[in-house]
Amino acid sequence: MNREIISDKQGISIVAIFIAGTSSILSLGLDAEKDVWLAITLSIIMGIIVSLIFIRLHLIFSDKNLFDICEICFGKFIGKIFILLFTWFSFEEGSQVLINNSQFIRDTALPKTPMIMPRIVFLILCFWAVKEGIEVIGRWSSFFIVPFVIFVFITVLLLVPKMDINNILPVLDKGINPVLKGAYSSFTFPFGEVVMFSMIFSRFKTKKSYYNVYILGLLIGGICALLLSLSTVLVVIPTEALQKYYSSYDTATRIDIGDFIQRLEIISSLVFVIGGFIKISILLLASCIGISKIFNFSDYRFIVIPICLLLLNLSFIEFDSRMEFVDWNNSGWLYYTFIFEVILPVIVLIAAEMKKHKRCP
């Protein structure tokens, strides 16, 4: 299978947009209410700690992705079981992101459009990106990262007149438990999802690049997500924000400066669409690479169309409504993802360290 090389800037851009894209319409850590800023900060730190696991794996096995490492550490049979688990996680997560994106488009802009239409459009774009490879996705991300960050800061700055500092005071008013709950939910989505990058990243120009891509990318994306979520809580009281499906988007609709600057929620929508495109593309790419590894295909590109069709089908099977989707993400998802984002990577790291110790006594 071809090993594509991307630059540090491209890798950082992919990670940052992947992490922050969804937060343009969905606020993170709202379980912490007034202390949302503290919860997200903790979740970023947790994401960095998990990122160090994958950086270490890349350093032990240079030019290898997570799927290759699983097979090296556990052998053909058990290794393929691990590969299958990680592939399923990326595939199922791709379905959920597709559901989230299409539901947002229908709910806010095209209420009479059949749900299948936005999903097909998204998948056609993502099919093209994955077919072209990680290098094209990287170039596309590096081109959009600057306007992406600018759009985030413009949204935050225009909301300043609507902000009330009392919405986040006093600090730790309800104790540490809500903060920990909010930090954990923010970690599982999106910061713990850095596991996806270990499936598609295998080669960079230098060893230092792994630190740059994972850590800087996560920090840039995390800061954008923090600013958007904090702005939501400063503008809207936390209890009201919790009642919204698209809390950050609803907050952006309140931008109104002198009856001249209005209706700028389109910026949030644009940031979300850019982030959704990158996220689905990365998840689809990880799924295709994983399936190719399971069946020992020399290249993943010829199975992109079948995987896209399977992803489309799964998106209609999983959930019947937005309410059901949100309920799952607020309950079972929090425990389900921990297996793939923490437990399995730790097991792989332990096996990798043992393998390295045997090779270098």
Rank of each mutant, 00 (worst) to 15 (best):
R3S: 13
V15C: 04
V15H: 09
V15E: 07
F18Q: 09
A20K: 04
G21Y: 06
S23F: 03
S27Q: 09
L28E: 06
L28S: 11
G29Q: 00
K34E: 04
W37A: 02
W37K: 04
L38N: 05
A39V: 00
I40T: 01
L42Q: 02
G47V: 07
V50Q: 13
R56V: 09
H58Y: 03
H58W: 07
S62N: 13
S62R: 14
D63E: 15
E71D: 09
C73I: 01
G79T: 02
K80S: 11
K80D: 00
I83D: 12
T87Y: 03
T87Q: 02
S95K: 03
Q96D: 11
N100M: 14
S102K: 07
F104G: 00
I105P: 01
T108A: 11
L110V: 08
K112W: 10
M115C: 01
I116C: 05
I116Y: 15
P118H: 13
R119L: 05
V121I: 15
I124Q: 08
E132K: 15
E132Y: 15
G133Q: 09
E135R: 14
V136G: 10
I137F: 11
W140C: 13
S141V: 05
S142M: 04
V146F: 14
V149E: 07
F153T: 11
I154T: 14
D164Y: 15
I165K: 10
N167Q: 15
I168T: 11
L169C: 04
P170E: 09
L172N: 04
P178H: 02
P178I: 02
L180A: 09
S186C: 05
V195M: 14
M196W: 01
S202I: 02
K205D: 14
K207M: 08
K207I: 01
K208P: 05
Y211M: 06
Y211P: 03
I223E: 03
A225H: 03
V235W: 06
V235L: 08
I237F: 13
Y245E: 10
D250R: 11
T251S: 01
A252W: 02
A252N: 08
T253A: 08
D256M: 10
R263Q: 08
L264Y: 02
E265K: 05
I267H: 05
I278N: 10
I282P: 00
L283G: 03
A286V: 08
I289T: 06
F295I: 13
N296L: 12
S298L: 13
V304M: 12
I305C: 09
I307H: 01
C308K: 06
C308W: 00
L309M: 13
L309F: 14
L311E: 10
L311K: 05
N313Q: 08
D320I: 04
M323W: 06
E324C: 00
V326H: 01
V326K: 10
W333M: 11
W333G: 00
Y335W: 12
F338D: 02
E341P: 01
L344V: 11
P345M: 07
P345Q: 10
L349H: 10
K355V: 01
H357F: 14
